[in-house]
Computed example of a mutant assay.
Amino acid sequence: MLNYTLLHREKEDSRFDFEYYLNVHMPRSIELLSNAKGFVKVSVEKGVELQEYNIASNYVAMCHYYFETIEDFLNAFMPHA
């Protein structure tokens, strides 16, 4: 199984709308890819900062697509990239 991870880096002076990403973008992405050959699952993670411990995240979000093979992933993803 292949895990293809998209990393959305934290950028100074930028805004990442996680609610939009989770509730609009990802459902559309899942709609486009989930019926493809070899699709297994998708997961999304949100970067967390713990200011009281001075711990910052380098990423605002991570998306993990799981497919049986790299070919399955590329065949599903590239027409929409």
Rank of each mutant, 00 (worst) to 15 (best):
E45D: 14
L7H: 08
P79R: 10
P79L: 14
V44C: 14
N54M: 04
F16N: 02
E49S: 15
E19T: 07
L33H: 03
M78W: 05
L32N: 12
V24I: 08
R9S: 14
Y53C: 09
E19R: 03
N75E: 15
H80Q: 13
A36C: 09
Y65A: 12
R15Y: 15
L2N: 11
H80G: 10
F73M: 06
E71F: 06
S34W: 10
Y21R: 01
V44S: 09
G47A: 12
N3P: 00
I30A: 03
S34V: 13
G38Q: 08
N54F: 08
L74F: 05
L33V: 15
G47N: 09
E31S: 10
P79D: 12
L74C: 04
S57T: 15
R28D: 13
A36N: 09
Y65W: 06
H64G: 01
L22P: 02
D17G: 14
M62W: 00
A76H: 03
N58R: 09
S34H: 12
Y53S: 12
R28G: 02
H8W: 07
A76V: 15
D13I: 04
A36V: 01
E68S: 05
M26L: 12
S29Q: 10
Y65I: 02
D13A: 10
F77H: 05
I70F: 06
T5G: 02
T5C: 07
D72K: 07
E71C: 03
E12M: 06
E19M: 01
Y65L: 12
H25D: 09
L22F: 00
K46F: 00
A76I: 09
E12V: 04
E68C: 01
E31A: 14
N58A: 10
F16W: 10
Y4L: 15
E49P: 02
A81W: 05
N54S: 14
R9C: 07
L74N: 07
V24M: 06
Y4Q: 12
K11F: 04
M62E: 02
D72S: 00
E19P: 08
Y65S: 03
G38F: 14
H64W: 02
H64V: 06
S14Y: 05
F39V: 08
M78K: 11
F67A: 04
L6Q: 08
F73V: 01
I55N: 00
N3V: 14
Y4H: 08
P27K: 06
T5R: 05
E49D: 15
Y21H: 02
H80W: 08
F18C: 07
